[in-house]
Nucleic acid binder design. Structure first.
Lengths: 129, 129, 129, 129
DNA sequence: GTGGTCTAGACCACT
DNA sequence: GTGGTCTAGACCACG
């Protein structure tokens, strides 16, 4: 699994943030787990320690990790995280449906298209996994 | 209706592009309609002509408008536009469902939440309209 | 008025943040006012642009300013700011009173001491102003 | 009662110092009492002996304890301690009132708010005690 | 011209 | 060893 993609237009630090958040949602990283050290991760990703530092600062600000000075960064396994993520996803999807409605698309038609897509993936399921 | 919002973190030219696209999807702007001139729009939005120019270039690149030298920019009312938009929306929503699946959220639960939201909007609460 | 003090143990970016917040609370900086540009402020304070940048990012995160790309940073004069500040001060003071109580100090005695101090300042008022 | 909190952003040695000072103010630790040995406390807190050592050095520097070589650290139960603490608290509170004044908040309003808070605590709601 | 991101390298506090 | 801050200098997107 590669954490970052230099081709991606999003800033590197943001990619790092997103990836760690996914790992926590998936349960790969759990409460109390120690994060890789800023320096070691920088080496691993062949990026700059400051970039990793910025990503960790953002993760801390968002409440995903906490810092113990001189020791490292640790996962703050909040049980609420998953629930928040769910709300966020629901909001995003609802917003998209609203947009569709605004431009006169039939919601029912949309739903059936989506179901079809999901079914196709369900069966063949091949994507990056 | 205001076309741009300076507080928005997205670049201004991108906001302009999005707004014109929405106007076309909604049918406010139709095939053959003339776009406002770069200069007049720049004045109206109190922004830089270069910014408007960039927005128009992007709209042209995406096939929404075409330029007639010395006369102005015109809407290229393609019947396919709406269909493309629908595909785009479907893709985005499917992607979000995939993400939900990856982190172990129940799709059914998600769907019921979304339905609830849509129903609530449907009934009373009007939004920014 | 000097914005930063290199002797101060607090990081420079934090001092910058605090100073701008005070200027907004006092009404010196008001809604819509443009902040000094990152580069110009860096020169003025003879510090590094990155340091100023970090301060501005923090101010934006806390909702005090907003950024318009290519234009600059502007004050987001929220009327609620002062109210929040008041709550914050009340909380801090209450906490100190609680601490005093915990170690067996008489609140009344404390209050009279404080009144005395305030009165003394009221009359002679000389401090850094 | 837990002496330290790794989630806290303050350095661990500082938390240790603060906690011992509170114990002395409250009278839990009194003149002549022996402090836990550096090594035992380090084990108890699962922290580094150097950290405890640094905390004790700071407590000695501030005049709260003294060291007897080969025997350990002892509380220097100074009667002045409480008085100093009181002065410190008064100063902090006065400073906060000054700050409130600077930004144009009404001191009277602030005081009434504070009284209200204290009364509410006084009556029912017990806090961390 | 503006802000945003990144690199390289340094120093400090804490453990 | 750890993270936190800062400097110097570069590049990019935006207006």
């Amino acid at each position: 699994m590669n954490l970052i993609n230099f081709q991606d237009s999003r800033p590197i630090y943001e990619q790092i943030v997103e990836n760690f958040k996914m790992q926590m949602y998936k349960g790969i990283l759990q409460e109390g787990d120690q994060m890789p050290s800023v320096r070691s991760l920088a080496v691993e990703l062949s990026t700059n320690p400051n970039t990793v530092q910025k990503a960790y600062a953002e993760l801390e600000r968002q409440g995903f990790i906490y810092t113990v000075k001189g020791r490292g960064n640790f996962v703050k396994g909040d049980a609420l995280l998953k629930d928040n993520k769910k709300k966020e996803l629901v909001d995003k999807i609802v917003e998209l449906f609203m947009e569709a409605h605004e431009i006169g698309l039939s919601i029912d038609e949309l739903v059936s298209d989506i179901k079809e897509h999901l079914a196709r993936i369900e069966s063949g399921e091949k994507k990056y996994d």
